[in-house]
Design a protein around this nucleic acid. Structure first.
Lengths: 257, 257
DNA sequence: AATTATAACATGAAATTTGTGATTTTGTGA
DNA sequence: TCACAAAATCACAAATTTCATGTTATAATT
């Protein structure tokens, strides 16, 4: 077992149990205590966990939980399934907007296959990816970079979006309940709303687990979306409130690749 | 002599003579033919040269010549000297604009030391670098990504710049002659001009070798700059035309690190 | 047929990772 | 507050991995 595998495994343990003991994991992987110390030090520096005496913890509710580097590691199979389904709404030649978030990054990767395509995004991970690909016209929105979300936000971002037009916008959200989607950060909300305002079709891509939660700011009414893509049917209250309006719901199923 | 030095040297040979023979360079560097094969393969993959039977060529006039990946590899010592000198104009806390180009990328690296600092740029290499650094507020301008220049351009870029204000702008140019600086690409010219318009001080950072050349579009009158930084004194005609106006000239000397 | 290119494997050097033991820090209970 | 044990850190040596290179054998070009 190599270094990176071991570290990944430590993160997995941490995600499940919220805390690990140093001696435990040293024994489990059959390496010295010092090696684990170094693993934990590096992961702490990367912002994934917090070292405590005798081990390490991951504090949900603190910054860690919402840190993109942490989320990046979770549920990648669900993300991929959602992304594949979302991509089926796109034909070569279209102009699409994609927002921030690790879900969106995966979608960006998938859409890069559909060349030729124009991608408008404030998501740094997608920019990095799309740059390298011929046949993809990449339009960055600009703005102030946020390490927390690995994307660009602010007046510049919103202004740029207000001057552009896309065929479809893919929006993700960390929380939804009843008829509303939520987000904890104001600047992020504004960028997502700007994308929706600048697009013909609007598509919400959301992990089913996000339902039943709220956050400080309302992002949008679910009825504003033409399509909602999730990995499980929407909860009954949401379905009921949406009624039989113009919003289509599509369920992504994981393809065992 | 290390791998990278050898490859750099191969490029230099190629720039001078337009073509090299494999056996020649294998003998010159005292390495096996196979090693040179691998060097050429990698450089070809990087888009720097074209392998032909028995050696390699570089076709000036084609995409290669102006390709940023190619320029990136050249004269890095001069670039570093220019960057160090340019950085001396910056105090922590300032807001700076940096434009596209590999010279500018090096400057971006150096400026990241001067935290806290706000960097406004359309240069993808600088964004990638500054993202990771706490204490650097990174503002991307957005725009359409150009692989040729590894930066963002267009209306979005110019609009974003028109709404911002920096203490100083660092501008680079591929050609200068008499009192004028030039660039071959219109979109690039516009972005540079937008940066100059949005900054208090304007600083031209230019390799002395660029003097005596012109290009399709005029970028700026040298007298518009508050400071010009180069690695050798300006040519006599330029000096004369500039006269004793408000433009300061500073010569960077290479520090043997 | 001769030259050049590619592929596969071996080797040695450099870089990285790990372990050990000494030393310092931290937490706990008297 | 003190003493003491457990844990953390440090510095260096050992082990392991990675990487550049060379060698040889085979294939492709001219």
């Amino acid at each position: 077992m190599k270094r990176e595998e071991r570290r990944q495994e430590i993160i997995n343990l941490l995600v499940e149990s919220r805390a690990v003991e140093l001696d435990d994991i040293a024994a489990r992987f059959g390496v010295s205590r010092m090696t684990i110390h170094r693993d934990l030090d590096d992961l702490e520096r990367a912002g994934v966990l917090r070292k405590v005496r005798g081990g390490a913890t991951i504090d949900a509710g603190t910054q860690f939980e919402s840190d993109f580097r942490f989320r990046e590691l979770q549920e990648s199979d669900v993300k991929r399934a959602l992304a594949e389904t979302a991509a089926s709404l796109v034909e070569p030649g279209m102009t699409v907007m994609i927002n921030d978030g690790s879900m969106a990054s995966v979608l960006g990767d998938v859409l890069c296959q559909k060349k030729p395509i124009t991608i408008i995004t404030n998501n740094a991970a997608i920019m990095e990816r799309a740059k390298a690909i011929a046949g993809v016209t990449l339009m960055g929105t600009g703005g102030v970079y946020s390490a927390k979300f690995n994307a660009y936000f602010g007046i510049v971002t919103e202004e740029a979006l207000s001057r552009l037009r896309a065929d479809i916008a893919f929006i993700s959200a960390p929380a939804a309940s009843g008829r509303l989607a939520y987000h904890m950060d104001e600047a992020v909300v504004r960028s997502k709303q700007a994308m929706m305002a600048a697009s013909g079709q609007k598509c919400l891509v959301i992990n089913s687990r996000r339902f039943g939660h709220t956050a400080l700011h309302v992002l949008a009414d679910l009825a504003e979306f033409d399509t909602i893509i999730s990995d499980k049917p929407l909860p009954p209250d949401t379905s009921a409130e949406l009624g039989s309006g113009g919003t289509a719901v599509r369920i992504a199923k994981e393809t065992t690749t």
